[in-house]
Design a protein around this nucleic acid. Structure first.
Length: 563
DNA sequence: GTTTAGGATTCG
């Protein structure tokens, strides 16, 4: 007689789930919201899993007991759910807690020890389960991209959402809607953290320790629903803060120098799994964190190499007039860029806020995201450009003009460039110029020829200067410190596609469209856009009485692996 | 015994 009931659990593959049943399933966590207090009576957690059938299942878990919900720390964790109810929501199977629901969670890393995390006092775990976990790890290693949101403070970028593993060193009430957490992870941010103003004496924590850590600590403001969680946290505990948002702020000081600081916000709500979870000492990421904390360079945090313009202890280093922030643009913070420089790699990057304050002409290396661009339709960006207009040259002598024009008359227009899907072409034969042929292209809009007053007309012209096909676009660039409009005028260097061939080649059009869509993807926020490394020059433009500074992109090309 | 939320970033 055995005290343990010989239950043989059957696990249903995720592609065989039927509404109205109660099942046991295994899966890899693809998305999750750490447990949070619902608007009802229970804690809630939303978890999406996937298995070898490549079918996803989103599950809703409710429990009055926080511990009873699945103990998931990151995407890629492996879970086993027992007595999961399957219901149908929006015509899709959906999992939900049913009575007797229980879960086990395992690290998803190949080769890591198979240790179940659970609040269940007793649970069934056999050699078969062990095999299931191993098999899912192997499958996930080639089918699930590793979590890219786990980032150390030294690698944070302005305008980013990421998950931070850190230790809490201080906390303070700010107001009803926000709460301050002071944390560190042993590394230093590329820009100094903002300092949230709080009333004296409300900061809880070891003030001597916090002072010693100086700029190794960051200030996080958490809002709304996260306030009560933050308030309950114990100083010294290890945390993972999910979907933490960074924002680079330029602050003007009395000395008129630009100050840059990095803000950290945990916004209200639970979208994208925003939340806070305490990690136990046994967590393998906490082991790593502890090592980073032990080996942290406290002296580096003092920034003794920076000349501060203010004597205030917590002040931010000022930007020099050249706008260089090289001290904080730590090289290890490099992230792959969607465009690269073809020259000037030795130059330091300059934040846009600094460029916007300076006189033209100058040249800068920048790193920014493409907030938007104009025109949206590729055919509108292809223009004929006259290089002579941009260069200072003598107007040809009248005597030479005849010869130049006569030569032009003998050239026959290229018929390959006529009547494409993007424009209609007409050949106009002159009567009094020896029958010289002039080709006029009427550019269509979405395949339709616009009214004559709105139609872009390209004229293959007049013999003196061979006109050059170019892409002309306006890029609105944003690096978190400022926004700047820069022109791109490119014949083939930037896209590595000749502008002269774009109008007659569908594949090239698709390629440029895809590149632009990758720079500036629709439907996602700018934080998820790729970084562009660009070289720009500023120049003065006089428009009547007004003088304006414009910017042009050059010596920049689309990164090779994107072409 | 029911409700909660039902993935899909704030705007401080």
């Amino acid at each position: 007689m055995s005290l343990v009931p010989a239950t043989n659990y059957i696990y249903t593959p995720l592609n065989q789930l039927r509404g109205g049943t109660i099942v046991n399933v295994y899966g890899v966590v693809k998305f999750f919201k750490p447990p949070y207090l619902s608007k009802g009576t229970d804690y809630c957690s939303v978890v999406t899993i996937v298995d070898q059938t490549n079918v996803k299942l989103t599950c809703l878990f409710f429990s009055g007991n926080y511990e009873a919900l699945p103990i998931i720390y990151k995407i890629g964790d492996i879970v086993r759910f027992h007595r999961l109810k399957i219901q149908v929501y929006k015509n899709e199977p959906q999992g939900i807690t049913s009575s007797g629901f229980a879960s086990l969670t395992f690290e998803g890393t190949l080769g890591a020890p198979v240790i179940p995390r659970t609040s269940s006092k007793c649970f069934n775990f056999t050699a078969e389960d062990h095999k299931m976990v191993e098999a899912l790890r192997v499958w996930a290693s080639t089918h699930i991209s590793p979590s890219s949101t786990l980032v150390q403070l030294c690698d944070v970028q302005p305008m980013q959402y990421f998950d931070l593993t850190c230790q809490l060193v201080g906390k303070a009430e700010v107001d009803g809607a926000s709460f301050l957490l002071k944390v560190w992870d042993g590394t230093r941010t590329p820009f100094p953290s903002w300092r949230v103003l709080i009333q004296d004496l409300v900061l809880e924590g070891d003030l001597t320790h916090i002072h010693r850590l100086q700029n190794l600590t960051i200030d996080i403001l958490v809002y709304d629903n996260h306030v009560r969680v933050a308030r309950s946290l114990k100083v010294g505990s290890f945390l993972r803060i999910y979907s933490l948002h960074t924002k680079l702020q330029s602050v003007n000081s009395s000395s008129q120098a630009s100050l840059l600081s990095l803000e950290f916000h945990l916004h209200g709500g639970t979208s994208y799994g925003r939340g806070i979870r305490v990690l136990p000492e046994s967590n393998s990421d906490v082991d790593q964190l502890k090592k980073a904390l032990e080996s942290a360079d406290l002296t580096a945090g003092q920034r003794s190499d920076v000349v501060c313009q203010s004597e205030h202890e917590d002040s931010f280093p000022a930007l020099s007039s050249s706008g260089s922030v090289s001290l904080y643009e730590v090289e290890r913070c490099q992230q792959l860029s969607a465009t690269i420089l073809t020259d000037h790699q030795y130059l330091e990057k300059t934040p846009l806020c600094a460029i916007l304050k300076q006189k033209a002409p100058q040249q800068y290396r920048i790193r920014a995201k493409l907030r938007s661009y104009k025109p949206k339709k590729l055919f509108q960006s292809v223009k004929l450009h006259c290089p002579k207009c941009y260069s200072v040259q003598e107007v040809p002598h009248e005597g030479n003009l005849d010869i130049i024009l006569q030569n032009a008359v003998t050239q026959t227009p290229n018929t390959k460039l006529q009547n494409t899907s993007l424009y209609d072409s007409e050949i106009w034969t002159t009567k009094d110029q020896g029958g010289r042929k002039v080709v006029v292209h009427f550019v269509k809009n979405n395949g339709i020829l616009p009214l004559s007053n709105e139609c872009l007309i390209l004229i293959e012209v007049l013999g003196i200067v061979p006109l050059e096909y170019v892409f002309v676009m306006t890029f609105t660039l944003d690096d978190g410190t400022g926004v700047l409009e820069a022109y791109l005028k490119d014949s083939e260097k930037f896209f590595q596609i000749p502008a002269s061939e774009i109008l007659i080649d569908d594949d090239l059009q698709k390629s440029v469209d895809m590149t632009m869509d990758m720079f500036c993807p629709s439907g996602i926020k700018i934080d998820a856009y790729p970084w562009l490394e660009c070289f720009i020059r500023s120049y003065n433009v006089t428009n009547g009485m007004e003088q304006q500074i414009c910017y042009q992109i050059f010596d920049t090309t689309v990164a090779e692996d994107l072409i």
